[in-house]
Design a protein around this nucleic acid. Structure first.
Length: 274
DNA sequence: AAGATGAACAACCGCGAGGAC
DNA sequence: TGTCCTCGCGGTTGTTCATCT
């Protein structure tokens, strides 16, 4: 028996989401929480498959997303985690509150890969790239002595030491080196272990580990009020624990301007003005 | 100014894991 | 225990925007 399609694709819309579709999806999740994704598009009045709705929500509409480029600190964490976990983007994302696996994957492929190659490091193995025989001469003239030494230093060292490498691309001397146990373990030993889910596990990461992702108290107060309104289910509520910066979000709510708004369906009038 | 090219990122596709029955 | 269904993950593609010629 062949695999069942995730949904009936006949008549379903594909491609970029419109603001109207975003509004529908957000309003539905606001009213119902995250339930069966397969049923979401039908119930929300969307001509999308459930998978598309889930991706749109997880990667773009979730209110706890931190938009914008990854900071150098986050980049370092990604590199270090990648050296330990490989291409397990969801696992890596679970250690970076407000970041999605898709975002990290894209950033890796477009930015970090190039930086590592420029440093003479294989982005897959995190080991020094063997210089091609023919290009040795060229490399010697284009790669600085420091970088060459960096590559040599990399040989045989573990991934944690990668962060110690002094390279101008990353300015590591400006950022405290973080050890794996500091990254992987929540500071509160009673905190639940992060799960593999990128959508709901970020809340279990301690914000004092990723210092630049700490929340302002006002946001916490605001969302604790929301959480007490019983609109959100447990998983959904957790996502508000690590709210970060929304200023750069395009379709995401302007939370700064909507702070006085209560999180009921009527309060999302801001979307109607978009 | 216009076309070509590359970079960045959003979205899709297929597969596997895990739960329900 | 086996089958089906849903969800999540990782790889890949498509689209948009910026830069170059």
């Amino acid at each position: 028996m062949g695999r069942q399609p995730c949904c009936d694709k006949v008549g379903l819309k594909k491609g970029p989401w419109t603001s109207d579709e975003d509004k529908k999806l957000i309003n539905f999740i606001l009213a119902n929480g995250q339930c069966c994704w397969r049923a979401v598009p039908k119930l929300a009045g969307l001509l999308r498959c459930g998978k598309s709705c889930r991706l749109r929500w997880t990667n773009y509409l979730r209110p706890d997303l931190k938009r914008g480029l990854l900071s150098e600190y986050e980049e370092k964490m990604v590199i270090d985690l990648h050296s330990q976990l490989g291409n397990r983007w969801a696992k890596i994302a679970s250690h970076l509150p407000g970041r999605t696996d898709n975002e990290i994957k894209n950033h890796w492929n477009t930015h970090i890969k190039k930086k590592l190659k420029k440093m003479g490091i294989d982005p897959v193995t995190h080991q020094p790239l063997p210089p091609p025989e023919v290009e040795v001469q060229v490399q010697q003239s284009t790669i600085s002595t420091d970088q060459t030494n960096d590559a040599k230093m990399m040989s045989g060292i573990d991934s944690n030491q990668l962060l110690l490498v002094n390279n101008s691309d990353f300015c590591t001397d400006e950022i405290p080196v973080i050890q794996p146990h500091e990254i992987l373990l929540p500071s509160d030993q009673n905190s639940p272990t992060p799960s593999s889910s990128s959508s709901s596990s970020s809340s279990s990461c301690s914000s004092n580990v990723v210092g630049d992702l700490e929340l302002s108290q006002s946001f916490e107060d605001y969302y604790s009020e929301i959480l007490n309104s019983n609109i959100w289910d447990d998983d959904f509520g957790d996502t508000f624990e690590l709210l970060a910066d929304y200023d750069s979000g395009k379709n995401v709510l302007d939370f700064e301007s909507s702070l006085p708004v209560v999180a009921d369906e009527d309060s999302w009038e801001i979307f109607n003005a978009v």
